[in-house]
Amino acid sequence: MEVMESARAALLFAYRDLLRFWKFKHWLASQIVMNLADVVIFAFVFNNIVNRQYIPDYVKFMATGVLAASIFASSFSIGREVGAEIRREVSHYLLALPAPRYALIAGRVLGGTLRGLVYQLAFIALNVALVGVPNPSQALAIAYTSLLLSAAMSALAIAISTSTRDFNLQATFRALTYYTLFFFSSVFYPKEVLALRFPQPIAEAVVHTPVSLAAEVYRWGFGYSSSVSPTALLEITAWAVALLAAASLLYARNVSGK
């Protein structure tokens, strides 16, 4: 019975976060334009100077990569809000509600996950139009990857945004996370290019980061590449579980001020 009530509370938190998603439509619009500009301007023009030996079509390559970036942008919107709640001490009100702490944490992460999936829909359509239509098993792999990546990024965003009360520092931490996750990934460049510039162990490690793994699944899912590592989905699952556990513990600590 208690479990059911906790689940209901978590769902309520998630529903509240999903409704509040539309409140930030201006911010959302600018994020969508930024992600779109990466494909329709940057990739389109850059395609003319890319070495075809590494990337035959940079527009398709970036379109699938932007899918991972879009998950990050939308999932991190929950981080912005949870960070603002800590600054304005709304978190005290949330802690005083008759719901267990784990329900609050699960609800916030679920809310962020749903936001990520909703936001990604437009970019899924863009990929279907630009790259290709996935078959049922590929569509399943794409959905599973998006779900896990969105959950992991939301949890990470919440943990990072609540680690300080300073608004500028919160924004800077978020940007640092973005740069670390995306520059050390295969979103903008393939692993062959990374191997040219960086020592082998680094280039090899980059392939196994969550964002790189997701980009690889998307590239295979939409038909840009013909194969994907057989362990990719397993690795994404392991990353998601680890990030969710660590970030939830951190959020629990930050929100209660311990």
């Binding site: 100077i49 070495n51 590494y54 740069y179 520059f183 050390f184 903008f188 460049y189």
Partner: peptide, 20 residues
Amino acid sequence: WFAVQVTVFGLALSAMVRFR
């Protein structure tokens, strides 16, 4: 993060560019 941008992103980007 500017240092990361010029040493990671910049180096990788320049490795895949071929002017034609």
